[in-house]
Design a protein around this nucleic acid. Structure first.
Lengths: 128, 128, 128, 128
DNA sequence: GTGGTCTAGACCACG
DNA sequence: GTGGTCTAGACCACC
């Protein structure tokens, strides 16, 4: 549970947290039955307000990713992996599809889009 | 000035309008000296609040894309083309770069990103 | 949108609000396309914090009961009625079923349960 | 002292335990002077935290249902039966009355409530 | 004006 | 210790 929070991203913080958990479950970094850090602990380690983490966890509960253990904390639900993989896939498609459609509608050519994606990926590869 | 407005896009409506104008200038569909539709006319044809069009035009003025002609309306500024081409380029890079970076941070592999972009582009090509 | 809030009910306030809206839609007191009171207005009229109303409305959005109109407010979704009727039915069954099962498990006889329900209903009928 | 604990019931576990004891005394399944299982034994047989059992027993003591015997444990108090019968009655009325009032306030008709109670009771009768 | 997010801090019940 | 709810108030973007 250590990942960067980008506060000026447009993406709400609680959503970033929820996504990280979802993707971690999808990737097997978090396994069913494992407990996630407590709200307060996560809030401290992410330097974020506890309510923000609580909201992320609440959303994950309503998504069926986390389930509460009374008085103990929250654990990854047994059948969360499949849902997380689907959610991951859907998120990736939605984000990319949305931008691609937006640019397409603006008249940007497919070739241009692909070449820029490629160059952005290379840029990231270099910096990491 | 006929293009679809997507109200549930996340992208602000005024931004969609401003972009369409900017891209039209960059592509030569709108030429310097040409006048854009009046705020009211545009609002009606786009089925949008007039204030929203006004805000888009205001932003385009501050970007140097449009300039006012007293008592007549707004025309495309004479030196707007270069700025619009740059803006177009920057916008495309920003939008794609942002999403790519976001997904990369979530652990999505470059290959997956590129293949999905490709499939989304094909999907658009089919539907148009 | 005038209904009593029972703060010491065990039922969270935001849930009471969400239920009232859901039931109003199910009953036809709120119709699709109609806008609900603004968060701030509802908060004032219910003597409740605005965040609490916001949470109720947020939940209703994720349930598909409300949909946002940018800069204007929230309206009852077009296809909300069916979902609200189903939700109403499910809620009633859940609440009654839960208590009945709980009492049954504790050894209370069906006859006793029914007769008490009847007497409670009569009590309510008299007081209203 | 063998009954199921429902951890995802909304009803606190310690309350479930206390109720079971109270109802057993009211029904004569537990008689005054009889000792209840030790906290540890009960905790093990119910698969529950010992603190939880302790809390239930503590509440039962303050209700006058259990009384301590030095060095031995807890026994059912001699005059507990009457109190337990009253508590049983009150609990049943409270639980049913609360739900009925809640649904009534939401606009559910008495007939609907009664018919659903009936169907839920039948469902339970079939499954037992 | 509208909703949305975030922060801060208090209070409660449960284990 | 855990999560849950509620309040209060600030800031933002959009229409």
């Amino acid at each position: 549970m250590n990942f960067p929070i980008n506060a000026s991203n447009g993406v709400p913080i609680f959503d970033q947290i929820a996504r990280q958990v979802t993707f971690a479950v999808a990737d097997g970094r978090l396994k069913p039955g494992q407990t996630v850090p407590s709200i307060r602990a996560a809030a401290e380690s992410l330097a974020v307000n506890a309510n923000t983490v609580a909201r992320a966890y609440r959303q994950l509960q309503s998504d069926g990713v986390l389930s509460p253990i009374r008085g103990t904390g929250l654990e990854v639900a047994k059948d969360a992996v499949k849902a997380c993989r689907a959610a991951r896939k859907e998120l990736v498609r939605d984000r990319l599809g949305g931008v691609v459609a937006e640019l397409h509608q603006l008249g940007v050519e497919p070739d241009e889009i692909q070449s820029i994606v490629e160059s952005e990926l290379k840029k990231l590869a270099r910096s990491s």
